[in-house]
Amino acid sequence: MTEAINTTAVDQPRLEKLLGEVGRDAAGAVALPLALVGDRLGLFSALAAGGSVTSAELAERTGLAERYLREWLLAMAAAGYVTYTEGGSGPEAKRTARYRLSPEQAEVFTNADSPAYVAGLFQAFTAGARVVDRLTEVFRTGEGIGWHEHHQDQFEGTERAFRPVYVANLTSSWIPSLTGVEERLQRGTRVADVGCGFGASTIIMAEAYPNSTFVGIDSHAPSIAQARERAAAAGVADRITFRNAGAADLEGSYDFIAFFDSLHDMPDPVSALRAARAALAPEGRVMLVEPMSWDTVEETISSPMGRVMAGASLFVCLPSGLAGSPAYGLGNQAGPARIVSLAKEAGFNDARIATSNEQNAVYELLP
């Protein structure tokens, strides 16, 4: 039996457009890991220290090999991550070229508290690509890849990528969008942060609401160890208890329970929500912070964010959601209708999107 051959004529302009898109993707594919190298070596910070530099001057400033720095600066300037300012001509042009960071580049690559900070994405996305061999195999078997099976850069990069977003939005817009939650937190109440990771969201809330107490739980023991260290460094360890536990093992009673970018990674999100419903005090609220997603293919592929998120889902979120029973496999593009349906299946009377931005949708679940 021979395979049918598509004899439809190729549209040359469409072909060229597709090749252009592949070329842009290829440029990004090499730029991100090289930017991660720069982040690890402190090159963006060294450039942000002031003034334009040659590769030799950057080598003197950092103690690194000039020849590698020369090529790195050229690659980063071609990507638009570093600004080329001036240079000579002829054979020595690249050796004498000068580079700097613009204020915008410094904000994006060096300011860890800025919502525009992206260095964590370099780390997380590069770590995601490390599982490509395993991912190829699970396409054949239908199995999952547990969160704990990823490279350490995935855990660190995720925290670095999400923390600036939480700093910018959590206490200024997300919590105020919920019914009565901010007032309770200000007065003093009990809060659970389910799937807390390194504890960035828990610590931000503890700093903002000193009258409340917090419990953070996560199934990844090394992340919980990091969370404890970071809470101590932030001076809020007296108000936070971190536990190594699964989402369905939530214990106690809470007026406010939050899931930050974690529900869609869980193999059994309904059990996690049922546990939250059982632990919720009367008139309490659950907040789900989820990646922005859409209910239709058309909406997803028409959004630049949809393109990024759907790809990221295949490397991390979907395999994690298939790594246990009953393996819901939500992925990060479950869509609002599916999220609301799961909340009601878990026993919540209602669920709504309280607020949203380009990156996240914030759901309020009502008992």
Score class of each variant (00 low, 15 high):
147 W>C: 04
361 A>R: 14
283 E>M: 12
229 E>Y: 10
328 Y>V: 11
294 W>M: 11
12 Q>A: 11
131 V>H: 03
36 L>K: 00
55 S>H: 04
274 R>V: 15
191 V>L: 10
195 G>S: 08
193 D>A: 05
98 R>A: 07
350 D>T: 15
210 P>Q: 07
105 Q>I: 03
343 A>H: 10
333 Q>Y: 05
194 V>L: 06
108 V>N: 01
216 G>V: 04
191 V>Q: 10
140 R>Q: 08
366 L>P: 07
366 L>M: 12
35 A>P: 00
76 M>S: 04
97 A>F: 05
145 I>Q: 06
283 E>G: 13
153 D>N: 02
153 D>L: 01
363 Y>G: 09
206 A>H: 04
315 F>Q: 07
259 F>W: 12
344 K>C: 13
129 A>R: 01
125 F>G: 00
246 G>V: 06
116 A>M: 01
296 T>F: 06
366 L>F: 09
306 G>A: 05
40 R>S: 01
90 G>W: 12
221 A>M: 08
300 T>C: 06
302 S>H: 06
349 N>G: 14
211 N>R: 06
306 G>R: 01
286 V>K: 04
1 M>R: 05
261 D>S: 11
245 A>T: 11
136 T>W: 03
367 P>N: 06
126 T>A: 00
243 R>Y: 12
9 A>T: 09
122 F>E: 04
306 G>E: 03
220 H>T: 14
333 Q>P: 05
198 F>I: 04
360 N>V: 12
234 A>E: 13
118 V>C: 00
138 V>H: 04
4 A>K: 03
192 A>T: 13
190 R>L: 12
239 R>C: 14
85 T>G: 10
249 D>K: 14
25 D>V: 03
310 A>K: 06
205 M>R: 08
344 K>H: 12
286 V>R: 04
272 A>C: 13
6 N>K: 01
364 E>H: 09
249 D>T: 11
239 R>G: 15
350 D>I: 14
345 E>T: 15
124 A>T: 01
129 A>F: 00
130 R>C: 00
324 G>T: 10
43 L>C: 02
275 A>I: 15
348 F>H: 12
137 E>G: 06
144 G>D: 07
286 V>L: 11
193 D>E: 15
74 L>T: 02
115 P>W: 02
236 V>L: 15
236 V>F: 15
294 W>C: 05
101 L>V: 02
20 G>E: 06
244 N>L: 10
17 K>W: 02
135 L>M: 07
122 F>R: 00
195 G>E: 06
208 A>I: 08
249 D>H: 15
156 E>F: 00
96 T>Q: 08
87 G>R: 14
293 S>R: 07
328 Y>T: 10
271 S>Y: 04
214 F>P: 05
7 T>V: 03
265 D>N: 14
367 P>H: 08
158 T>C: 07
91 P>G: 07
301 I>M: 02
267 P>Y: 08
174 W>S: 13
30 V>R: 07
331 G>A: 08
303 S>C: 05
210 P>A: 02
297 V>A: 12
185 L>D: 13
102 S>Y: 01
240 I>H: 15
344 K>P: 11
116 A>W: 01
70 R>Y: 08
52 S>R: 08
277 R>N: 14
337 A>Y: 02
